[in-house]
Amino acid sequence: MTTPLLELKDLQVAYGGIQAVKGIDLSVDQGELVCLIGANGAGKTTTLKGITGLQPIKSGKIHYAGEDITGKPAFQLVRKGLSMVPEGRGVFGALTIEENLAMGAYARDDRAAIKDDVERVFGLFPRLKERRKQTAGTLSGGEQQMLAMGRALMSRPKLLLLDEPSMGLAPLMVQKVFETVMAVSKEGVTILLIEQNAKLALEVSSRGYVMESGEITLQGKAKQLLSDPKVRAAYLGEAA
């Protein structure tokens, strides 16, 4: 068995005085699309913040690409190919769309290839190309999500962490976002997807983890989870 691209071992993270993540194990293999689902406040976002060093972790280990990255600050991780789209998108509202994309490539210095990648992102999201000189603050929520994903792709990530990409979006936009997630995954980017929209997340993923008040309560193949009566009852809104 090959070592996974990302592996969390007994990760514990405290957030605002409460233990939000109570020792979880999770792994993502090269090329996989894995989702982490759970209700609001289950500790999903805190898990991601722990991985990227945005939230100091209490104990446990994080391995990425065979390297111990526990406690490494976020700005060093991008250079290793680990990129994250934060919750609430986090676009730079006062910067133009082009500048936002340039920020995504901040850690790179291959100018010619960066130009190509900007065009690639514009190919993926033609809407952004039309508005390239506009500030990101003038975009709609869906467009900002596209920009945030485009910006993350600008770093040519090996592993992409997505935090609730569908949050607050209109159904049509949610569809578009998930199509993009699948397209990016097909290009060979490994993805760890965090979602409250369990049904859609499990439909696009190969494997899934279910998180409940800081612990992983279920895991397995996405198809099996989709048909698991407990998951159906708790997250897919069906009677048990």
């Binding site: 990227t52 945005l54 600050p73």
Partner: peptide, 24 residues
Amino acid sequence: TRLGMAMRATAQNPQVAGLMGIDI
């Protein structure tokens, strides 16, 4: 400049600026 862009980004959102690879 690159530094200027990093400064503007950090002013807006230091956490996300860090995610972009900027050492704030």
